[in-house]
């Protein structure tokens, strides 16, 4: 059995090496606002636009929903980068959600940069529901940036083994 569940419900992997991809590819976690960027990504799909398969998308009700903790947790879980995408300023479905997201993301990005996390790993964009082309462009650029900075080894620890769960 590749894993077991202990009495307190934590998943333990028992010595099984997770499948290693032949060639490393960045894994990007996207938090997309359901009113704009998520629809933009949808449009990119339905209009058959090509963009890297590096992104895994989580739909959020508003970019203002994204807690800095989500960003850090994603990095700890082994994602190479995080993209938060919401409506253009002035277009928020809830009037002010993206303005607040902007302050939070700006502080988080700058602060994590000070702590030693490469700024490429924390990205934000404004993508409207009609901007499929912008969405593909953002994902492509962010992925390229992540390829430059390389795999996320921030939370791995040579002394304690791999401190990260592997993002799938």
């Amino acid at each position: 059995m590749p894993f077991s569940v202990c009495s307190i419900g934590i998943l333990h992997f028992t010595g099984v090496k997770l499948k290693q991809a032949k060639e490393w590819e960045p894994k990007l976690l996207g938090f997309l606002c359901r009113w704009c960027s998520y629809a933009g990504a949808d449009l990119a799909g339905t209009s058959r636009k090509k963009y890297p398969a590096s992104i895994r998308i989580i739909k959020v009700p508003c970019s203002g929903r994204v807690d800095p903790l989500f960003i850090l947790k994603a990095l700890q879980m082994g994602f190479d980068g995080v993209l938060v995408s919401g409506c253009h300023p002035g277009d928020c479905h809830y009037q002010t959600g993206n303005y607040r997201a902007r302050r939070r993301i700006a502080i988080t990005k700058k602060f994590l940069e000070y702590a030693g996390i490469e700024p490429e790993r924390i990205q934000a964009s404004w993508v409207s529901a009609s901007e499929a082309v912008k969405f593909t462009g953002v994902v492509t650029e962010v992925t390229k940036g992540l390829e430059r900075v390389g795999a996320n080894k921030l939370f791995t620890d040579e002394r304690q083994g791999d401190g990260t769960a592997t993002a799938q």
């Binding site: 303005y99 902007r102 993301i105 934000a124």
Partner: peptide, 16 residues
């Protein structure tokens, strides 16, 4: 408070 307030234009250089 800091995270409740906002200006219409700020910190745009950090966002794509």
């Amino acid at each position: 408070p800091l995270f409740v307030a906002y200006e219409l234009e700020e910190a745009e250089d950090l966002i794509r």
